[in-house]
Write a protein that binds this DNA or RNA. Structure first.
Lengths: 197, 197
DNA sequence: CATTTGACATGATAAATATCATATGAAATC
DNA sequence: GATTTCATATGATATTTATCATGTCAAATG
């Protein structure tokens, strides 16, 4: 492994850790000293890879977004729009997703913390939201974007709320209620469109 | 003003500030030194009023919750359930609410940060959610709680998402989309109930 | 009026924070 | 093989953090 490969590997190791911490502990989770120590390095070397803490936050957010499993991209292609939306909601609002923020969608893990980040971080988050909406609309051009916006807000809100509730029964009920509501909405959107024509 | 009144007044001044900061800057916003300085006091006196930082977080959350304006409690009484729900969503997902987190609902301001708080804070948050659901169901007994859970999650998610987006146009679109979806859901819930009978 | 109490201030401690100057040692280059 | 480069380490600085021991002064109490 030559030097640039080595550097890239180290950077990746840092980013993997940082992206996980960002989702489990938020912006405060990525203290430089602790992050580097737990990556098997020392704090001084940090600035070889990132010019500042905020640059790390941005990079970790983008890294997290690129590495979420189960995104809208990995879906069977032969679904009706409503079925596709229901499936997305079911996956997003799943217990397995709730219980593993470290590998999950950063949008829900960070929603209410975004306003406390710097401008660069806010812009990066906004770009992730835009990308997520684009992915959701794939191959169904012409749909009013408000429909997917609302479904995304419900998914993000439902997952974040479920994670905020320590009682498992209540938390499960939140996931269930939001999956149900997503299905109702997905159908209602189609009906609405039918009436308009 | 005697001594206990004076103490209570000071405590209230601290709590007012802390409750506002908690909503605008999150858990990290209430550094003891800065909080006390900005309340016109010095840091040492803090422990006369609160045993610890986390006790403050809990007290500030409860204080914030008690002092939100425009809650479900302040609504005209003669509304159908669906109309009531639409009105609640319209108020919650309003630009004025988005633009003033310092006086707004702490549930949306803190959703994604709750898991980073201590156990006491998480429990306090859960109690606030439960209370909020109770308020929403007032006088319409017998409704499946899932309906209000979903509407609350959509409201929280929509408002938090709108606050996370720096572009005003996009942010407005999120609020609009979530208000619309809330209205559709509120009507769909009634229809659904009609069919069941 | 003397004494006590208690709300708040002063100042200290210990830990954690971001950042950077400099050192080191191994890989890359000549 | 000598020299340069650069990824990482060491160690330092300045700031911020929560917490507490102790001091002070005004109000309450006898």
């Amino acid at each position: 492994m030559n030097r640039s490969e080595q550097k890239a590997a180290t950077r990746t190791k840092i980013l993997d850790l940082a992206a996980a911490r960002l989702r489990t502990e938020g912006l405060a989770g990525n203290a430089v000293h602790r992050l580097m120590r737990d990556a098997g390095l020392t704090h001084g070397g940090f600035y070889v890879h990132f010019p500042s803490k905020e640059a790390l936050d941005v990079a970790a957010l983008e890294w997290a977004m690129e590495n979420v499993g189960n995104t809208a991209k990995h879906l069977p292609g032969s679904l009706s729009r409503a079925e596709r939306r229901k499936l997305l909601a079911a996956r997003y609002l799943a217990r397995s997703h709730r219980d593993h923020p470290e590998t999950g969608c950063p949008l829900s893990a960070l929603v209410s913390e975004v306003p406390h980040g710097g401008t660069a971080f806010q812009n990066a988050y906004a770009a992730c939201v835009a990308q997520s909406l684009l992915d959701r609309q794939a191959d169904y051009g012409g749909t009013p974007p408000g429909e997917d916006i609302a479904l995304l807000a419900l998914a993000i809100g439902g997952l974040a709320l479920a994670r905020a509730l320590p009682d498992p029964t209540t938390s499960d009920a939140v996931l269930q209620a939001c999956r149900d509501a997503s299905a109702i909405l997905a159908d209602a959107f189609e009906e609405q469109r039918g009436e308009e024509q």
